[in-house]
Nucleic acid binder design. Structure first.
Lengths: 259, 259
DNA sequence: GAACGCAATAGTGTCGACACTTTCTTGACG
DNA sequence: CGTCAAGAAAGTGTCGACACTATTGCGTTC
């Protein structure tokens, strides 16, 4: 029971390590980032119950900032909260993933269409330049950079739609699938066609061809989904080592709650 | 300064009043609901700074559940959090409103299309029956009922799309614009054509005519927007009484943050 | 008289403690 | 031997207090 459920995690290994001024002003923020990272890296596994006391010890802060962070993460869908029982890591099923990506596709296609209608030429050129500046060395970057640049590209389209709500939505979606995308990219199953896809999307934008652009985006995302599903399967198999009994963690598991 | 910034609000006027067992198990939840209500009713005004101590006194709980509630509300966009300065009521501009409705239109149109593709006949009939059961007395109901039935109609479409993410999104959007819609309905600027619009949408669904349905939905929502804008103007004028200096609360005010 | 700095006040961020609830353990009873 | 219940342990939800930060008001200096 006293087994350190997050392998080892020194009290101040987390976040950005300022000298050692024991400032206690942003424990909440740091807790949020750290816990989110734990979730993203599957060090907290789907359906696992989160123990606030252990977490607070691991991070070297009291339970208050831990709870604040968990509440935020709950609102964002990373964890769920059952009254009097605590926070649980949200289970992640393949179906759920498909649904999120479908939502993403909807948002992005709409953004593209609105961009074609509303953005002026100068703005469209910003999109072209953004992509032009990174397309060459794109595939050779480290995963985090690739991920950031890719998100940036799609976010720029959302911005050019002129509707900040779409940007918010896309950012929220990105946050939810970022760790999966990271896994995917790290597994190097990143398809070279995806680079061309971005270029083609830029082309469509320059021509203001909303219909074409939407179609490109849709298939672009669809390809991503299948690549991601494969990568995810591999990653999960690795995380839930065979024979690990805690491996039955709701992965495609039917819900058993019925209170 | 000691002026009771939320007019008067007896410590236990809030939420559902169980007998008087002083259970302290869900202060957080109750605080969330109460604060949200305060926001929805403009008793906490846009850009106003939220004083946790006063709030906690008003609600008769400590600051802990207040903060938990505010964190949730921050994640949902109702309030914003500036480190070391506290929570602020999110400003609400007309433009912002348009953006949200545009997002809603995007989500709903997509949901309708997917419903046409995926739902079986029996499910479509559920939609028809739902509307059929309420269409007659629709306009004569009290505002809350109208609002609930209208939301139910649109949510049902989202459900029939088969993508629970769309349902979540629509619920989140509804939560954000519910108070505005309430204002609108109470102002009785509810257009009789809107009833027919729902009927027409059902027709399109029965014919599985995605294109027509999307078009109907789009214009349905557009009409709602203009009606709502008018109602909102009236309501805000009433809330921010002329001469009230706190009335300059970011209503169409340019942002001045630049830290 | 205005700008500046300093002290006093108000308010947030975090903590440790405690009350209550759920879960686990143990032992009696069938 | 299994079932159930009562008590113990673990864990969450809330509180009041304190440390630190931002803001306000006041007096000083130019």
């Amino acid at each position: 029971m006293s087994e350190p459920f997050i392998s080892t995690l020194a009290p101040d290994q987390a976040a950005d390590a300022e000298p050692e001024s024991r400032r206690l002003a942003d424990s909440s923020e740091r807790a949020y980032n750290t816990i989110r990272k734990l979730l993203v890296e599957f060090r907290l596994k789907p359906e696992q119950r989160i123990n606030e006391v252990q977490l607070s010890r691991s991070l070297g802060v009291s339970r208050t900032p831990i709870r604040e962070a968990l509440n935020r993460l709950a609102s964002e869908g990373f964890v769920s909260l059952t009254p009097n029982r605590g926070f649980f890591v949200r289970s992640l099923s393949t179906e759920g993933l498909l649904d999120i990506y479908e939502l993403r596709s909807i948002i992005e296609c709409a953004a593209f269409r609105l961009m074609c209608e509303r953005a002026d030429d100068q703005q469209i050129e910003r999109l072209r330049d953004y992509w032009g500046a990174i397309v060459e060395g794109y595939r050779d970057q480290p995963p985090d950079v690739i991920l950031g640049e890719d998100e940036g590209f799609h976010l720029l389209i959302a911005e050019l739609s002129g509707n900040p709500e779409l940007v918010n939505q896309l950012e929220a979606i990105n946050a939810r699938i970022r760790f999966i995308r990271r896994i995917q990219i790290e597994h190097r199953s990143h398809d070279p066609r995806q680079v061309d896809a971005h270029s083609a999307i830029v082309e469509a934008a320059l021509k203001r061809d909303a219909r074409l652009g939407e179609e490109l985006l849709r298939s672009h995302i669809e390809i991503t989904v299948s690549a991601t599903q494969q990568a995810l399967k591999d990653a999960l198999l690795k995380v839930f080592a065979p024979g690990d009994t805690t491996g039955e963690t709701g992965w495609r598991q039917k819900r058993r709650t019925k209170t």
